[in-house]
Amino acid sequence: MGIGITELTVRIVVLAKQVPDPETPPSQFKIDESTNTVIPPNGVPPVVNGFDLTAVEAALLLRDSGADVEITVMSVGSDFVMDAMKKPLAMGADRLVLVDDSGLDNIDSAVTVRVLAAAIEKDGPYDLILGGRQASDWDQAHVTLGLSEVLGLPLVSLVQKLELNGDSVSLQRVIPDGYQTITAPLPSVLTITNELGEPRYPNLRGIMQASRKKPEIFSLADLGISSDDLVPKLELKKLYIPESNKQVELIEGEDEADSGKKLALRLREEKLI
């Protein structure tokens, strides 16, 4: 436990993943089909998965509301880019814990869950485990869900609002036509959805503080795991960009207003309106 942490402090761990920048324009998105990997576009550094930053924001909102919280950001992988991974610290998180090991290249979510569970058990105990609703690379949306099973903790997904009440947490969970209100005990595992609101931008003070903080690093050996034990359950056979053969029919009028009129007439001609 860090300085200033008491028994009353609510310890929160936020799971974060380093991903290729999803704002990369489609024209620059390329795949090396011989290795089944995405070719990192020139000059576009990786970022922390945006949905995970929303989960960091959720933890920071609890602090803003007056709760005594300690926020740890945790990630597993290899080849971490520190400028990217320190963003949650610059936003206001307290600690960054990385399981950084070359044995964690190209892992699947089953392996990720196992390693995260071991790291959480070693670094914990935690009162809340937060994850983003999904990662913008493999879009699987189940690491956090799987973690709740492996750790044997209650799970609530798609949380848009949370409030601490002593030893429980009151939640709003998004459903298609509104939301559910849910009460969960501590500790629990939650996935946070983007309806919560946009993650805050780091301010200068936060960036300065983050630059002075060092990540705490675990290797697989520190967690008592041998990379030989980490057998993926899904074997990637092929990764490719699907071909689009759609051809757009551009409507061009004398001016833009005329184009608008012609578009409506064309849609009527096709019996679409």
Binding site: F29, V38, S136, D137, D139, L234, K238, L239, P242
Partner: peptide, 17 residues
């Protein structure tokens, strides 16, 4: 087969277990 990278690519996996 599942869409990945927000649908920019498709990935084909084999599951043996």
């Amino acid at each position: 087969t599942r869409p990945v990278y927000g649908g920019s690519a498709l990935a084909e996996f084999e599951i043996a277990s």
